[in-house]
Each structure stands twice: as structure tokens, then as C-alpha cells.
Design a protein around this nucleic acid. Structure first.
Lengths: 194, 194
DNA sequence: CCTCTCGATGAGTATTCAGTCACCGAGTTA
DNA sequence: TAACTCGGTGACTGAATACTCATCGAGAGG
């Protein structure tokens, strides 16, 4: 790679980096391309040399993030840990990238078809792992005979709710951290007889 | 009231009516003041003679709707029905005005402070009734010893999730109607030992 | 060293909207 | 019926914001 190519790649990475920072802070919908350019220290027009439009920039950022998160989840799964451990570690993961997930929880319904499908596809994979883990538990009589799909929806719906309304639940800090124990406890109560 | 006053009131009501129809169909954020004016068959500027700005129009519409819904809920509560009946009737209510609740579930995080507080205040009253009903059940040993706040969050979070992502769950019809049985069943399972 | 390439620039364009205001004319008042 | 009131009009303004393009100049290539 010659000087030009190096600089080009550098600029592109800088845009991605600054864009992610802004998106996480203010949401995708409320971040302007001018702001991103400003933060990256480049001209507004330059951004469009690297990305066809704002949407494709968002798609690329989310693709990277989701890919990374998915692989971490895959990792958790493959270690065949039990449901409680899986849930705890999943919540840890959400907590680490909480700002991003807050934005996703809020804005998902407003994204275009392509983006929504991508996000929900990753989501459905994660859900399916929980689904299987619960099914197994029922089969082995460790869990009560619940409606598995419905139970999974309760879990993901609740998490989504906490994320999307985060500012109501606390001024600062992590909602996931705060409610992790009660989420886990209540979900276990749904699955396990006392 | 003379002719002028009657006409004025008529226009105002027409705006409110058309605005609500558009808001319910396309959401508050995606409805323009021009569209509302057009649907109401008035000039764009006329809208601003009746409402200071778009926000105050939204606030008035939602105030009316929420007031009505609250009074219906109060009515349900006062009849001292059991939790299952309360939940079923609450879901019926959501189902009747489902389009509105879908919009609220999606857009709530984006409303201004005033509007969000109003909506969440009404919401918290409803939640508190469920809260009390569950507490009573626990005290009377009819229900398991669950974390009441957490249980209520599971319920409302799940409902909110179904509403906000409605198009994913079905092409047409009512999400609430479709998932009512599984929501009720799973929530009962959380509360009642088998 | 000369020419060409191409990444970067930023002023400019197009569009979308909320909100304004000078003016109009039907209805009210005296 | 003349003067006045006031609800309604719609072209206009201003702000926000995604995206374009003529131009520049550092670096590549011969």
C-alpha cells in the first residue's frame, strides 16, 4: 500500500470510529453526517466518498458490532454452560455495550427493512439458544412445563423494555447491572418450581 | 355561540380528529402538520391558529386518549375483579386501541419530557393496580413468593415488546389478540405453583 | 521534472418541515 | 349599511440536513 492508500484507509477507519461514538451517544437517527465529519476532522463531503450514504455507514458499523457480539455469544454457547450461566453472561455482554443496545432497543422499529432484518436475524439466533436450553431443561424435568416460546419472549421483552426506557429507571450507570439479579431471579422462578 | 364560534370549534375538532387518525396510522413523529391540514381540508396556517405548535397538538390528543383509557381502567379496578380477569380486560383494552399503543410503545423514548412523564404517570397507575393485586395474592398464599416489582416489569415489558415490534410477529391483525393466551398463561405460571 | 491520478475540500443544491404574516372576506355590531 | 372583527388563507421564511461537484494539490508514475 502506498501513502495514498494508507491515508484513505485511515480516513475510512476514522469515520467509522467517530460515527460509532456519536451513534452510541445520540442514536443513529439523531446523529448528522456533518457532526460525524466534524468529529473525524474531515470535510463533510469526504464522508460520502467513503460511504454511499448515511444508511450504508450505519449498516457497516452495525454489521461489525453484531458480528463481534454474535461470535462472543457463539463462544458462550459452545462451552455448554447451563441456562443461568448463559443468561448471566449474556447480560454481562449487554452491560458492556449497553449504550449501543439502548440505541438499538429504541430505534429498531424505525430502521429500514434491511437493517431491521439483519439485527433481528442475529437476535433470533441468540433467542434460539435460550429456546433450546429451556427445552432441554423441560425434557430433563429440571424445568416446569412452560410455553417455551412465550417464556423466551418474556425474557427478551423485559430486557428490551429496561433498555429502551433506561433513563426512567436510573439517572446514571447501567440498567442491566441494576436489574440483572431481579431479571435472573424472576426468570428462574418462571422455570423452576419451588 | 354565534356562527363564527361554532365554525371555530368545528374546525378545531376536525383538526383533532384528523390528526389522531394520521398519528395512529403513521406515528406522531412521521406525521407532518401539512398532512393534517390537508386531511382536515383547511389551510396549513389555520392549524397554528388553533394550536401553538405541533407538540401541543400531540399533547392534547394524547391527554384526551389517556384520560379516557385511564377511566376505563379505573372502572375495571373498582369492580374488584381477580388478577386474571384484570389482565384479560386490560389486554382487551389494548387490543381495541392497538394502533395507538403500538405508536406509543415505539415512540415513547423520543417524546419530550412533558409528554413522556404524562404517559408514564398513567402507566404507573395501571402498574400499581397489578402490583397490589399480586401482593394480595402472595399474602393470601394464592401466589408464589415472587419479586412483585420484577414480575410486573416482566408483564409490561413483554406487552410493550410485542407492541413495538408488531410487524415482525404478524402481517395483519392484532398482536395482542394473537398472543393474549400465551401472555396470560405464562404470567399465571410465574405466579402460581403447579 | 512533468504529467496525471485521485482523495479531500467546502460551498452549493435540493428537500423537507414547522411556523409566520399580510391580506381577505364572511359575519358581527352599532 | 357602514365599519369593524376575527377565523381562515397560502405563499413565504428559516432551519435542518443529506448529498453533489467543480476545484485543489499532494503524491504516483514515467
Amino acid at each position: 500500500m502506498n501513502k495514498r492508500q494508507i491515508q484513505k484507509k485511515k480516513t475510512r477507519e476514522l469515520i467509522l470510529q467517530m460515527a460509532k461514538a456519536e451513534f452510541v451517544k445520540k442514536g443513529f437517527l439523531n446523529t448528522t453526517t456533518s457532526e460525524i465529519a466534524e468529529k473525524a476532522g474531515i470535510a463533510h463531503g469526504t464522508l460520502f466518498l467513503h460511504f454511499k450514504n448515511k444508511d450504508s455507514l450505519i449498516v457497516e458499523i452495525l454489521d461489525r458490532e453484531l458480528e463481534e457480539i454474535s461470535s462472543i455469544i457463539q463462544n458462550l454457547i459452545s462451552r455448554a454452560i447451563d441456562l443461568e450461566q448463559l443468561l448471566l453472561q449474556y447480560l454481562d455482554l449487554l452491560q458492556e455495550e449497553e449504550e449501543l443496545f439502548v440505541v438499538l432497543a429504541r430505534e429498531l422499529p424505525f430502521y429500514n427493512e434491511e437493517l431491521r432484518r439483519k439485527i433481528l436475524f442475529r437476535d433470533s439466533i441468540i433467542r434460539s439458544h435460550f429456546h433450546k436450553a429451556i427445552e432441554l431443561g423441560i425434557k430433563e424435568k429440571r424445568y416446569r412445563d412452560v410455553d417455551v416460546t412465550s417464556a423466551v419472549m418474556f425474557l427478551f421483552g423485559t430486557i428490551n423494555y429496561y433498555l429502551s426506557l433506561k433513563p426512567i429507571f436510573l439517572k446514571e450507570g447501567s440498567v442491566i447491572k441494576k436489574f440483572k439479579p431481579s431479571i435472573v431471579k424472576t426468570f428462574k422462578q418462571l422455570l423452576i418450581s419451588d
